[in-house]
């Protein structure tokens, strides 16, 4: 079901992307990413049309018949080519990156024949691929968090403003909004008020850095999915941009995670939070040591 929904949403995003297609077709200067390096740079229109056609046919056929590996492959190749063209203008955008890797991994799903009569082994294979998609996507968030930490420590060593500073987020928001002359609902507020920004930014670093650990703890799937959705909502409110496909992706693979238990108590979820278990164990050990010292004395 998750996979069918993935391809149905893929078609929806393809249709939403069509607004940009006229501009893409009119491009006379392009420096595509390597998968589309075969494009004739002096006259790219014909080749861009071919890629757009391939992308549309791939999206449509995978949405209608997602069990067929050939159509899943066609969609993956179409999306790869499309992103190679779309990101061929001096900047790489990351909005469809998770979608691309998921579609690549879904090529490895069992064949349509196997999916028609799913044995336990076939179901296991399907779940393994879905889990791989969860791992790679949260790994990307972990990378983002680790970069923030790495740059923060580097900045501290160089006596420059770091992500831990109280006004760090205000500086980031102001710089971003100025560069694009955008207005955001909470932009002004967070530029003027450092503390709420510091809380949000520190929370984001925690959420991102430990994302990969969360995927190993099914009780955290919905919490992390919801947390990251709030983070993407926050970038829209504060910086005036967001990755729309990320909402669908996190909703599909984490809020609807097939591994998340139907019910888990708040206490269990809190105990699973990265760092919390360590603190609990340390606290218990400390209490045990204190009680044994009291008994022996």
């Amino acid at each position: 079901m998750v996979i069918r929904a993935f391809y149905a949403m893929s078609l929806m995003f393809t249709v939403m992307e069509m607004n940009r297609w006229l501009d893409l077709r009119d491009s006379s200067v392009i420096n595509p990413q390597w998968p589309a390096a075969w494009i004739d740079a002096s006259s790219p229109r014909g080749h861009i049309d071919l890629i757009l056609g391939l992308f549309l046919v791939g999206s449509l056929s995978a949405a209608l018949w997602p069990t067929y590996r050939s159509f899943r492959s066609l969609y993956f190749v179409g999306l790869l080519q499309y992103m190679a063209v779309k990101n061929g203008f001096g900047k790489v955008n990351h909005d469809f990156h998770m979608w691309l890797w998921a579609s690549g991994l879904f090529v490895a799903l069992p064949t349509s024949k196997m999916l028609r009569t799913p044995t336990a082994r076939v179901r296991h294979s399907v779940l393994s691929v879905v889990w791989a998609v969860q791992v790679i996507s949260l790994f990307f968030y972990t990378l983002t968090g680790l970069w923030k930490l790495a740059h923060a420590f580097k900045a501290i060593a160089a006596s420059r403003p770091s992500a831990f500073d109280l006004n760090a987020f205000s500086l980031i928001v102001a710089d971003r909004l100025m560069e694009t002359s955008q207005r955001a609902i909470l932009g002004d507020f967070l530029v003027r008020n450092s503390f709420p920004g510091w809380v949000l930014f520190t929370g984001t670093i925690y959420l991102e850095s430990f994302a990969l650990l969360a995927v190993l703890r099914p009780r955290l799937h919905r919490l992390w999915g919801g947390g990251l959705i709030l983070f993407h909502l926050g970038t829209q409110l504060v910086m005036g941009f967001t990755f729309i496909p990320a909402f669908a992706f996190l909703g599909l693979f984490f809020l609807c995670s097939p591994f998340a238990p139907d019910r888990s108590s708040a206490r269990e979820v809190v105990a699973d939070l990265p760092g919390v278990l360590l603190v609990i164990r340390w606290w218990r050990r400390r209490a045990e040591t204190a009680s044994s010292v009291a008994v022996s004395s």
Partner: peptide
């Protein structure tokens, strides 16, 4: 720079700008 498509670094808003840039 540039990144090796589609293996992105995911370094997004990692650097805090200096007060004077």
């Amino acid at each position: 720079d540039p990144e090796l498509f589609p293996v992105f670094r995911w370094s997004l808003f990692s650097k805090v700008p200096n007060q004077v840039e």
